[in-house]
């Protein structure tokens, strides 16, 4: 069995790696929650890359229905074809298009399926997928065909905790909450992106970054990806030593809300 141990471009904590391996071993979907910017979506990419498998992404929107992931029956195309006498109208299978979940089931080899931001959809959405995720199969009524997974896909589901997920769904998942990375892990993450980063710039920027996150009443805490952008900007801008705390250059990259900006500018950075 293949074991996930992180990739070059993605730094995973030991417990996160464990969670992936447990999910694979127990053949259960892995539900990942965490603050925005903690690399939930990247995890699936990294797992796919590390295990050498194809990644199928199903992006969930507020209008997504469970059925969309299984298959679509293009009735309108069939009507058109019928009116213009095109060929193949008799064959309903011609108008059945598999969704992302269907695609993952139907694949000839094992794939990694990412169901991204499941909490965006309707409250009932996860419940509608229980059977399919449990049994890894579904039935197409129109063609009387059962699509069954040839190889059980590795399912990774992310959530931003915007909505409560139903208990029945949670019971079937392995759950892991990605904590916001501490300074050590953060340093490692940044060095993956910028191996050449200057030590003092990194330290100073991280100091400011964590202090901003700690300011009381901050509306939107800056996330990892914003810190990475900021360090990039600081490197390009060539900021001299010791100036970051005093002048907060390009701070707009990290702090996005007007109220927060005001608080940050008036904050006394140590």
């Amino acid at each position: 069995m293949s074991i996930f141990e992180g990739t070059k471009g993605y730094v995973a904590s030991p417990e996160l790696m464990d969670s992936v391996n447990i999910a694979i071993a127990l053949k259960k979907p892995l539900l990942i929650k965490g603050e925005p910017g903690t690399g939930k979506t990247m995890l699936a990419e990294s797992v796919a890359e590390a295990l050498g498998k194809k990644l199928i992404i199903w992006n969930i929107k507020s209008t997504t229905k469970a059925q969309d992931g299984l298959y679509m029956y293009d009735t309108i195309q069939r009507l058109y074809d019928g009116q213009f006498g095109e060929g193949g109208v008799d064959d309903i299978a011609h108008y059945i298009k598999l969704g992302k979940l269907g695609e993952a089931f139907d694949s000839e080899e094992q794939v990694v399926l990412l169901i991204d931001e499941i909490d965006k959809a309707d409250l009932e959405f996860p419940n509608d997928l229980l059977w399919e995720l449990d049994q890894m199969e579904f039935y197409i009524g129109e063609t009387k065909r059962t699509v069954k997974a040839k190889h059980r896909p590795i399912v990774i589901i992310t959530s931003n905790a915007e909505k409560e997920l139903p208990d029945a769904f949670l019971r079937r998942c392995i759950f892991h909450y990605i904590e916001f990375p501490g300074k050590e892990l953060m340093e490692e993450i940044i060095k993956v992106h910028f191996p050449e980063v200057e030590e003092h710039l990194l330290n100073e920027a991280m100091d400011v970054f964590y202090q901003i996150r700690d300011i009381r009443d901050i509306r939107k805490k800056p996330s990892t990806s914003e810190l990475i952008d900021w360090i990039n900007a600081l490197q390009i801008g060539g900021i001299p030593y010791g100036q970051i705390k005093a002048k907060l250059p390009f701070i707009g990259v990290v702090v996005k809300k007007d109220e927060d900006l005001e608080q940050t500018v008036h904050h006394n950075f140590q």
């Binding site: 417990e15 464990d18 969670s19 447990i22 127990l26 539900l31 929650k33 905790a161 208990d167 949670l170 019971r171 998942c173 392995i174 759950f175 892991h176 909450y177």
Partner: peptide
């Protein structure tokens, strides 16, 4: 410690 995290992933479904 591995048991702590592992058991948590399987048994606890909300932070």
């Amino acid at each position: 410690s591995r048991f702590y995290y592992g058991a948590r992933m399987i048994l606890v479904k909300s932070e």
